[in-house]
Design a protein around this nucleic acid. Structure first.
Length: 937
RNA sequence: GCCUUGGUGGCGGAAUUGGUAGACGCGCUGGAUUCAAAAUCCAGUUCUUUCGAGAGUGUGGGUUCGAUUCCCACCCAAGGUACCA
């Protein structure tokens, strides 16, 4: 009987399902192990070969841990709110729920074929109301909390109110919006309720504020940077501009310091921690106020280099800075206006990317240098970003390269304040190795001395103060979308009020149209009968009553990251109706032991979820303030996109190598129409999209060759490869092993199907070894020494490699082992039994089949089998001959300046025979069998 | 631009602490088996070569007896860049 993977895989998948093999209990005497995958967004393109990479890796670990007697929680679910389903709804009118459910069904079918050991009884979907009810509940907790810097934690707003009632804003140590009123207890108590609510909004962790957004007036909606291409909307190609809007924000900035400190105690990749640290961007410096000439106003700047204060020769404001138009002189007004207009069309990325294009405009206004009283010109430049610091910088051309380039470009004065340092070509940006000059009382000082002196000076004089600044901005939480969690807020005379907990969920209403309303309200404004009871028993509604909308509901929805910021706790207790997670469940599972996901989430999901964790920890709702002990970034499997060249202005397409000098555009084509030699199927493409119906394809040597480019796999890039065909042709075990064999787990790699036959023939070889003449055949004889050696070498290698997550080298070890066993014609039970256990995390179906052919009961927890840790010491290593080949001798002689005769004794590095060399220096040579490793002095 | 990661044969990749570069797999070449094919098995496969040898881990330097590995500068690619998920 040949290796019939279809039959075997169908058989065991059915068996596991019927026996609920992977159902996990919240109660067990075994130690717990929670292994989590980042849950997928169910996209219309189905699961692509990149998704399973992480799931296979986590499944290997989950199955391995079960063998090692852990109670393993390995759940899966769907991040099912999101933009693509909504855009599909806009195009077709199909409700996103229907789209999403169809996609989920497809995902599940694909996942089931791969033999994952997920506990599907715990499945969650962020778009189901019994899930998002709790997302809304957490929002309300955030709305009802403020950040107390004395206790360094979030506290209920009721405590803040009682503080106001007793002492007003006096001795208040909290984090709040920048512009806040100061008031006494007496004043507070005299405020009207609405006034009080407005004040409290400045302190809440979920608060309303003015934020800048990408506004497309033609679409009547806000766009993500992702949806903008070259300054116009991807959908429709309409103009996009920056606009201020009142939006919900999350005060993640309050947690900046704790988010940095928390990184120290979690085992996450250093590169990812570094990314988060840089994203939070803590910098020490000073904030300074500059008075403006002839106008009674001042501008605050933040600088990390207050030591260079005497090198300031101008000031630069972001074009969006609120005081720009106020200070601009009459003569400069028009040029400033037009500059602001032109920069409002550029995205932040564009502005940061083209630093070579220097642009700016003079406002006509002057600031007064606080220390020497000099008048310094105020410019606007788009290299200054409104969102960072105060949106204004004191420009020190001698000490900052961007200031330097700007000054050179516009002919602004550059004053050198660094003694004996040449700045004729570039700014001097080092923080050490200089002495200041031309800096009055700072002359002769170095960086550290000057910083200290200048900060104490400006603080004494009241010009400013030392300050720690974070680059991290508060997270905007409003989305003008339909397919997201409704924000459980209604408005009473314009003031946001919380919907009571017991009235959650606030269900997403039906709408006829998924676009914004004609008046520019978010899509939820289209809902006709959307109403809610509050505790006051008054109807809250966006329905017009007597032509007036009383108590309208919030029409914005939550962003995609809301539902994914706490989902890992819901898996512990997915059916709980009383709480977002039950106390018993969370006491048992505590946190995630291993989290697998892509590094593309480093500064998004992985930061927001840590923020919510810390918040829920502050409220004593969770036992730990970091939810994942260890995290591994699996590298993305990239797609290999295909492009064809169209001659500009024609419908002629040219094969890759026959392009002449004419202008051409690159057009994406679907990779399914391209074979592995990069040849395009010209017949298929004509039926693919209407634009190709009458296209001419100019071939080379009878073939049409495409241009390839490696990039992220996505439906819109037409480079998605589905795992289904591979499962169909080779089976799940082959796919699982091949994805692991492709390369190191943590490294990004382009998908390439061509190597898969090697892994497949390994499985066939293994099968054939125990089916020598068609039927299953093992002997009960004692294995030969050679076979044992192969087995135990493999056990050792696999165990080490699993623990290091080096699954690719695991597969190599299996291949070597089976090759050796084949040569030895080994078919002893005592070899096959441990081998099938060893293989089961990687290729579970074939392993189960062989295991049961041996007459064993199928069982996932094979505790009874002494493996992994208890491999035999490989006999031959004990007596491994230490061979001095020519090179080794040469190296030792050179290194020790000895002749080989002088070396009396040698050491094995496992300390079994510690020996010494003659002579005093060096003391020993450490050798592992066969090669010299190190010389210890 | 900035932050993070990576760059080794025709291809994916291996190389533990700085110590024989290219494990394992794909592909390719030759052979066995076969009427033939598929499948399977065996051998070879970094490049150059005057067959002595020489070169070689993105490029250029440096440290070292010795560098894929450590240091400096640069080039290229991927991910992120705050409303894609």
């Amino acid at each position: 009987m040949s290796y019939d993977f279809k039959k075997i895989e169908y058989k065991w998948q059915k068996f596991w399902k019927k026996n609920q093999t992977f159902k996990t209990s919240n109660y067990s005497k075994l130690p717990k192990y929670y292994i989590l995958d980042m849950f997928p967004y169910p996209s219309g393109a189905g699961l692509h070969v990149g998704h399973p990479l992480g799931y296979i890796a986590s499944d290997i670990i989950a199955r391995y841990k079960r063998h090692k007697s852990f109670n393993v929680l390995h759940p899966q679910g769907y991040d099912s709110f999101g933009l693509p389903a909504e855009q599909y709804a806009i195009q077709t009118g199909q409700h996103p729920q229907i789209t999403t459910e169809a996609n989920i069904e497809k995902y599940r079918e694909q996942l089931d074929k791969m033999g994952f050991s997920f506990d599907w009884s715990r499945e969650i979907r962020t778009s189901k109301s019994d899930y998002y009810r709790w997302t809304q509940w957490i929002f309300l907790k955030l709305f009802d909390s403020y950040y107390d810097t004395n206790e360094d934690k979030a506290l209920p707003v009721s405590i803040l109110i009682s503080h106001f009632e007793k002492g007003g804003t006096q001795n208040l140590k909290v984090i709040s919006n920048s512009k806040i009123l100061e008031f006494s207890a007496l004043e507070w108590n005299s405020f009207k309720p609405q006034q009080k609510e407005e004040i409290l909004l400045n302190y809440r962790l979920a608060y309303l504020s003015e934020t800048e957004v990408n506004w497309c007036s033609k679409l009547g909606t806000v766009l993500a940077n992702d949806e903008i291409v070259n300054g116009v909307s991807e959908r429709g190609g309409f103009l996009v501009e920056k606009k201020k809007m009142t939006q919900w924000s999350m005060r993640i900035g309050a947690y900046a310091e704790r988010l940095i400190r928390g990184l120290e105690k979690i085992d996450w990749p250093d590169s990812l921690k570094e990314m988060q640290r840089n994203w939070i961007g803590k910098s020490k410096g000073a904030s300074l106020r500059f008075k403006i000439k002839d106008i009674s106003d001042e501008i605050e700047v933040f600088t990390t280099r207050p030591d260079t204060l005497f090198g300031v020769t101008f000031m630069t404001l972001a074009p969006e800075h609120e005081k720009v138009l106020k200070i601009t002189s009459k003569t400069q007004y028009n040029s400033v206006k037009s500059y602001i207009k032109s920069t409002s069309k550029r995205s932040e990325i564009d502005r940061m990317s083209d630093v070579k294009i220097i642009s700016g405009v003079f406002t006509g206004a002057y600031a007064i240098h606080p220390l020497n009283g000099e008048e310094i010109p105020i410019w606007i430049g788009d290299y200054v970003l409104a969102g960072y610091g105060t949106g204004a910088v004191m420009s020190v051309p001698c000490g900052d390269q961007r200031d330097y380039d700007f000054a050179k470009h516009f002919g602004i004065t550059i004053n050198n304040i660094f003694l004996d340092i040449d700045i004729s070509d570039n700014a001097f940006t080092e923080k050490s190795g200089f002495q200041l000059m031309n800096s009055e009382f700072l002359n002769g000082l170095n960086y550290d001395q000057a910083i200290e002196k200048v900060i104490s000076f400006i603080e004494r004089k009241g010009y400013g103060k030392g300050k720690i600044n974070y680059r991290l901005r508060d997270a905007v939480f409003s989305r003008q979308r339909y397919w997201g969690e409704p924000i459980p807020i209604y408005y009473k005379n314009g003031t946001p009020m919380a919907i009571e907990e017991e009235n959650l969920p606030l269900e997403l209403p039906e709408v006829e149209n998924y676009l914004p309303t004609s008046k520019g309200s978010p899509p939820l404004g289209n809902a006709k009968n959307w109403a809610w009871d509050t505790a006051e028993k008054k109807v809250v509604s966006n329905k017009l009553i007597n032509n007036k909308s009383i108590f309208p509901l919030e029409l914005n929805t939550m962003p995609g990251w809301a539902g994914s910021s706490w989902y890992f706790y819901r898996y512990m207790d997915p059916d709980n109706n009383e709480s977002f997670v039950g106390k018993e469940a969370v006491d048992y599972w505590q946190d995630v032991d291993l989290y697998l996901g892509g590094s593309e989430h480093a500064t998004g999901h992985l930061l927001y979820s840590r923020f919510w964790q810390k918040f829920l920890f502050d409220l004593e709702l969770l036992p730990v303030d970091e939810y994942a002990k260890k995290l591994i970034n699996q590298g993305m499997i990239l797609g290999s996109s295909a492009f064809i060249h169209r001659k500009s202005g024609t419908n002629d397409y040219y094969s890759k190598n026959i392009l002449s000098k004419f202008n051409s555009e690159l057009i994406r084509v679907d990779v399914s129409m391209v074979n592995s030699f990069d040849e395009l199927d010209c017949k298929a493409i004509k039926n693919w999209q209407p634009q190709f119906n009458n296209a001419n394809f100019i071939m080379e040597n009878g073939k049409f060759i495409v241009t390839r480019e490696v990039e992220k796999m996505s439906k819109s890039k037409y480079n998605v490869v589905n795992p289904d065909q591979i499962c169909e042709a080779y089976g799940a075990d082959t796919l699982r092993m091949y994805e692991m064999f492709l390369g190191p787990l943590e490294q990004a790699k382009p998908w390439n199907t061509s190597g898969i036959s090697g892994v497949h023939s390994f499985l066939k070889k293994l099968w054939r070894l125990y089916h020598p003449s068609g039927s299953f055949n093992v002997t009960e004889k004692e294995p030969r020494k050679n076979s044992l050696k192969s087995l135990h070498q493999t056990i050792k290698n696999i165990t080490d490699d699993i623990n290091n997550f080096s699954f690719n080298t695991c597969i190599s070890s299996f291949m070597i082992c089976v090759n050796e066993l084949t040569i030895q014609k080994c078919n002893e039970r005592k070899i096959l039994e441990p081998l099938s256990v060893l293989l089961s995390p990687f290729a579970p179906h074939i392993s189960e089949e062989l295991w049961s052919l041996l007459g064993n009961n199928s069982s996932i927890v094979r505790e009874d089998y002494p493996l992994y840790d208890e491999y035999y010491l490989i006999e031959s290593i004990k007596n491994y001959p230490i061979s001095f080949n020519g090179k080794m001798r040469f190296t030792i002689e050179l290194a020790l300046n000895l002749s080989i005769k002088d070396i009396e004794e040698v050491v094995l590095n496992d300390d079994r025979t510690v020996q010494q060399l003659s002579g005093q220096v060096p003391k020993k040579v450490i050798i592992i069998p066969g090669k010299i490793v190190n010389v210890v002095y």
